[in-house]
């Protein structure tokens, strides 16, 4: 009965099946595909938004126009705050025209619902923000939102 207690014949442990690996990876893949939001613009200014607690979520993201204000990412441009509209730096006086072009991309019925969101770095001085707000008032873009992250104020 030698065969009954046969010793290992050199085959080793059976290989672990990796057939389910693609399934797991695909599951992760679909998760990220669904949750991903493609960055709408390349940021040319450093923006770390402040935190706040009394905040709401945007109802419709396609109605939001972003205005970025912060120090330029390129060191040679200095450290004073700059405004970014779309993909380029802009001056305060350009804000009105930019809002008008954004309005042109929407139906007339949607225009009163458009929101202008401020993504402003926490170190920024209020002077430039106020100037932009005055420009928005001139073109009657009165619905604004200060972008913040949720959390207790840090101080």
């Amino acid at each position: 009965m030698a065969s009954k207690f046969k010793k290992d014949d050199g085959k080793g442990d059976p290989a672990i099946s990796t057939a389910s690996l693609p399934d797991i990876v695909f599951m992760l893949l679909f998760f990220f595909m669904v949750t991903t939001v493609m960055r709408e613009v390349d940021l040319k200014v450093n923006v770390v938004v402040p935190s706040a607690t009394e905040i709401q979520k945007f109802k419709n993201k396609s109605l939001v126009t972003y205005i970025y204000i912060g120090s330029p990412t390129e060191k040679k441009l200095g450290t004073s705050s700059r405004i970014q509209l779309g993909d380029a730096y802009a001056e305060v006086k350009d804000v009105g025209a930019y809002i008008e072009t954004r309005r042109g991309e929407h139906d007339e019925a949607e225009v009163p619902l458009l929101v202008t969101a401020f993504k402003v770095d926490r170190e920024t001085k209020m002077g430039i923000v106020t100037e932009v707000k005055q420009e928005l008032r001139k073109v009657s873009a009165l619905k604004i939102s200060y972008s913040t992250v949720e959390g207790l104020a840090s101080n």
Partner: peptide, 22 residues
């Protein structure tokens, strides 16, 4: 997967809504 991991930004779409005076 790596592609989506890199391009993904968990963008915050939260903010404080305000109205400017006309």
């Amino acid at each position: 997967l790596v592609f989506f991991l890199v391009t993904t930004t968990m963008d915050s779409d939260m903010g404080m809504m305000r109205k400017l005076p006309p």
